[in-house]
Structures are given as C-alpha cells and as structure tokens.
Design a protein around this nucleic acid. Structure first.
Lengths: 342, 342
DNA sequence: TACATTTTTGAAATCGATTTCCATTTTTAT
DNA sequence: ATAAAAATGGAAATCGATTTCAAAAATGTA
C-alpha cells in the first residue's frame, strides 16, 4: 500500500541512462541536448516524479527557502508584510515558511530552532513583545543563517533592519491632534525595550515638548498592547478629575479599547475625546466614527525586507553595512475620530 | 567567514566517541545511559549544534511537518483554523508550513508541488475559489502524502473532510430573517462547484421553500465573493421596482459591500433592509449596525482536522473510511443588522 | 586512415543523520 | 572460575540528488 516515491533512479532505469544524467537533464545542465532534456522531463511527468528536496538540499546546502517569524499572522500589518515578502520570494523562486510567536518569547525561540533545523537561507523576524534578550537571534547567525529584522527590532542586535519612520509618524499624529485643539493628550504605548514603541513614544514627547504642553506623568502608560489592557488604562484615566481629552495609542486595538470605554461612559468621540491609533487595521474605516490611524505600508515594508536578502545579500548589489537600516515612510490617515469639530 | 555548521561528527570527535553514538544519545535511545546522554547534550549546546533536518528527514522518510494551504491567511476564519491546527501540531511536536493560494488555482498547484518537494507528511487544504478539477489533489496522494480537506472541499475528491454544517446554518439564518418579518430575501453566493457554497444555497432554498415564499430568480446571485462584486450585485437589485428587503450573503465582506451600497442609497439597515453575513469576521461587531453573522468555529475546525491526522491516520485510532466527514456545528450570531424592529 | 578535439555519458564521492549488524566489555548467574 | 546474559560502542550501509572526474563516443582535421 505504501508505494514508494519515484526517484531519479527509477527514471534512470526506465530511460536506460544513469541517474546523474537524469539529474542533469532535470536541472537544465548545459551539456545536455534539448532533445534528451525533453524526453526526461516527459518521463518525469508521466511517472509523477517529484524531487525530494531533502536530498537535494542536503547536497546543495541551500534550501531556497526563507523563514518569517511574526507575533501574529492575522494582524493586518503583519499579514500585509508577509504578502509583500511572499511576492518577492515567489518572483525569485524561493519558498516561505511562516511562524507565529503569539507574542511569546518561548515560542519565538522554538520557531527559530525549527527554521534553523529546516536549513532556511534567511530568517526575517519581527520579535514578540516579550522578547528582551537577543541571544536567540545570535544563534541564527552562529548557524550561518542570514538575519533581517523588520518592524519590531532589537536595537542591541546588529543586523539589517527595515523599519517605519515611527518617531516621525508619531510626531505628526500628535501635532495634528494639537492642531485640532486637543491639549491633554494621553499616550498608550508598548513595551519600551522595543525600538518601535520607544520611537513612537519619543515622537509623541517631541511634539508635546515643542508645543510646550504640560502632561501629567500618569497620562503616559506603557506596555498596554492588548485591547483589554488599554481599556483598563483608559477607564482609570477618564475617571480622573482632569481627564485626557485625547488618546494616541500605538495600536488600533488599543484605540478600540479606549473607544469602547468612552462609549460606555457616554463620552463623545471625537467631540469630547479624540482618538488616534496605529497600524490602519481593516476595521478602522468600518467603525463609526472611523478611527484615525497610521498606515505603515506593510506590503512595501515586507517587499523591502525580502529584497535586501535577494539583492544585497545574495545578489551582491551595493553591499550594505551590517547595521543598515531601511526606513519605510508611513502615512497619517486622518478620519473622524480625531477631528474635533466633526 | 563561512564557518561550517557543527555536525554530529564534530561532536563525536570532541567527545571521543563515534557519530552513531552521538546520534543515539541525542535521540534518547534506550540503550544509552543517562549520564552519557547528559554529557552529549551539554556538549551539543556548548558547540551550538543544530540538527540538519534535511539529513535526518532523508534518512527517516518522515519530516514531522504538515502543510496547510488556504486562500488567504488574513481572513479570520482561516487564521483561526490555522491557529487551531498549529496548536495540535505543536502538541505533537510537528511543525507547520503555511501557504496561501490567493484564490488562484495556479498558485494552489505550485503550493502543492512545493509541499510535496518538502516531503510534508500531510497536507490540509481549503481550496481556492477557482479550483474546479481535483487532479492536483490526486498528485498529493500519488506522492504518498496524506490529504485532509477542510471547509472548502471538492466533493468529487475522495478524502477526509472537515466541514461546517453549512446547509443547516444557512437554513437557520434564513428562518430567522423570515421570523423577523423579512420576506424578499436575496442570496449572494460563492462558486457553486464548491460544496460549502452549494450547501449554503441549499439551506437558503430549503427555508424559502418551507415558508412558501416566492423569490424572483434574479434574487439569487452566485459567484460574487468579493466585496466589490457583492456591492455591484446589490446596487442592481436595490434599484429594482420590487427590491429585496434582506440580503443573506455567504461572507461578511459581501455583506459589507451590500451595507455600503445601502448606506449610499439612504436605505436604513436593519429597518428597511436586513443583512446577514457569514464567517463572523472581527469587524462584524465593530461596525454600526453590528452585522449578524455565522461563527464557523474556525479554531475548533482546525483542531479537528489536525487531530484526524494525528489520532486517526498516525495513531491508528478508530480507522475512518476514506471519505469520512466530520461536521463542526456553527453558531448563528444575531446582531443589529438583521433585527427588523431595531 | 590516424590522430586530436569536442561532446556525451557514467561511476563514485558527497551532503549529515540514522540504523542495522556486529564486536567488545561488563555484569550476573551457576 | 566459568558460562550466559546484558550493556556498551563502532563500522558501514542507507536515504536521494548533485557533482566531480574521467571514460567513451562522436566529430573534425591533417
């Protein structure tokens, strides 16, 4: 019942040639005539031959596969990024293995181990929110696998990095909120050891400082990535005698949490409370009022990251310094939730 | 610069034993004392040894990897299903390769080829909307790889199948719409050659028939999966002299298209027009009015599909007929968009 | 025709881990 | 003290494709 898979030896026997000849024919080797190549190819299809990549990869060293590790595949930024990576890989005839860390450091380590075992040529990673140390990324390098970080990068780990202009984008967001007349702007951030979140906070602070606004220390809450955490934080802040009149959050899900708390407290958005999110999830333009957000151009970012591997690392084009950072400009999208007059 | 990867031979040399001994120690072979195992393991970590799975898999035949092919990873049903599959795989120490067909038959074929090359032990697939023939699925079997279809299954292809109770769920949805007082219920469907969509249509028709409603032929539109297609269809229908007073669509994105057309035509939802979607995407409860939908229990379905592989195929538990169908009961979620009085 | 050159083709080594089959060595039983 | 049994460890074959090296065949040249 377990009919064995067809190998090149079976093909060779059928065609009365040697296995090496078959291998060369299938690999389009120049020393083989087109006539023979055609004959071998036809036979391969006829017998339903499929190459065993493990054997091939073992011999060749390369797998023509790259691995991606992201916190969640179902957040629009990451799924867009993956889509961009996939497109570039496909064009280069590489395949893709996708892993999720589910924001867990342990899972991230496991995923890295799996990918190294699989001998991927390169790992593109956006680390989990739990990730603080970088020794697991070191082990990627040590095992001779290329490493490219994107979006959530560890500062201390030297590698190619592809990032958004987080600080700049945040700065613009907050400037815009101020322009709309909001002055008591609270900030809900992520874990500060990740550059993305640190930079978003810095952009926020820069704008605040520039405008000379005075913000109570407790208006800045970090490490509240989930919707529920954000809701809890918002509840507390909105119960103050002098509550914030706007929230800038580093994710749309946080904004959603804030919005739901505001609704439950009968606070009008955007009239009494402005809200500005980050990531431009699909739902931002579906809810009412539509949520202002930052479009991170995930697809473009993914493409850029993958291209660094193909063009700069493999292709030898313009060798980059190991710490090269590529910045993808994001776009501020102003919708109803942050337009005070609306 | 290209320091070669550490192999068991390097370990063996360091430890002054043979490679076979190292292999056995690392694989927890019973004839080796715990003391030695510990010593080898320590050395492996010290030298940062990572097994080369290609070599191991080539030898062992199995890869402890299963492949999943879905139309899109960023639709909530599929990402939930993947999450369920992942959970079960993880528990069984298997890894997962995820591919997207992007609703293209050609991509689907490519993904299958890639997975076969990679020697996955099993492929779990939900086919693209373009997929009509099943010869590419045949080739999975021919190459000795297990096949399990889930959600979007090809009827004519014999394999294990894990499905929702589509007909039943649709029947209940339409009965509910009728109970709410809607009588001119239009149906926006998917490609009819896929059982999921055929069954949803059947459920719709069953309820209509049972209630003795008369539905004009053009109220039933098939093969309009995208939001834009759905919007176009809705625009046409709502312009009729006797337009529908409700839409039941086989996806939430279609419903969204209908909703946006209704809004643009100043038609009140749910007062003048009831809308009922399918898949329970995250946005359904965020939009206003919240969209009624069908929760397909994606995670549960994914778990079930993966378990068939581990328990029934590998584990030898209760051998199932090749055409065994497992049905996951879905849940009707009634929100504002289909409550006429609301 | 004899020889040189080019083109086809195959045998064998190789990639790294696993496993089978023996050969020792050690332990236990008599 | 000896035989039998158990534990320990290694040599070599194996998985399937690729590649090096060299032989064989075909072609061209003098």
């Amino acid at each position: 019942m377990n009919t064995k898979r067809i190998t090149i030896y079976d093909l060779a026997k059928e065609l009365n040639v040697s296995a090496s000849y078959v291998s060369r024919a299938l690999n389009n080797h120049p020393t083989i005539s087109d006539k023979v190549k055609e004959r071998v190819r036809k036979k391969a299809i006829e017998l339903n031959y499929k190459q065993n990549s493990h054997a091939a990869n073992l011999r060749k060293g390369s797998t023509r596969t790259i691995g991606v590790i992201v916190p969640h595949i179902d957040q629009s930024f990451f799924s867009e990024a993956i889509s961009g990576i996939e497109e570039v890989c496909f064009a280069n005839n590489y395949s893709l293995v996708i892993c999720q860390s589910h924001e867990s450091f342990k899972n991230e380590c496991l995923a890295i181990d799996t990918l190294i075992h699989q001998n991927v040529d390169c790992i593109l990673i956006s680390v989990s929110s739990e990730t603080q140390s970088s020794s697991h990324l070191d082990s990627i390098r040590k095992n001779n696998v290329q490493l490219i970080q994107f979006d959530r990068c560890l500062d201390k780990m030297s590698s190619y990095k592809v990032l958004n202009d987080n600080k700049d984008a945040s700065y613009k967001v907050v400037k815009n909120l101020i322009k709309e007349g909001y002055t008591k702007i609270a900030f809900l951030g992520g874990p500060g050891h990740l550059a993305v979140f640190k930079n978003r906070k810095e952009g926020y602070l820069k704008a605040i400082k520039e405008e000379g606004l005075i913000i109570p220390y407790n208006f800045i809450v970090e490490d509240v990535l989930s919707k529920d955490d954000a809701a809890a934080a918002a509840k507390e802040l909105l119960a103050l005698k002098e509550p914030p009149d706007a929230f800038f959050t580093v994710s749309d899900h946080q904004s959603l949490g804030v919005f739901q708390v505001a609704t439950s407290l009968n606070i009008q958005v955007p009239g009494q409370l402005g809200i500005f999110g980050f990531a431009n999830e699909a739902f931002t333009e579906l809810i009412s009022p539509a949520l202002s957000s930052v479009n991170q151009k995930g697809k473009e970012l993914g493409k850029c990251a993958a291209k660094i591997f193909f063009e700069n690392i493999l292709g030898g084009k313009r060798p980059l310094s190991k710490d090269h950072e590529e910045i993808i400009k994001s776009e501020i999208i102003i919708r109803e939730s942050s337009i005070r007059g609306a």
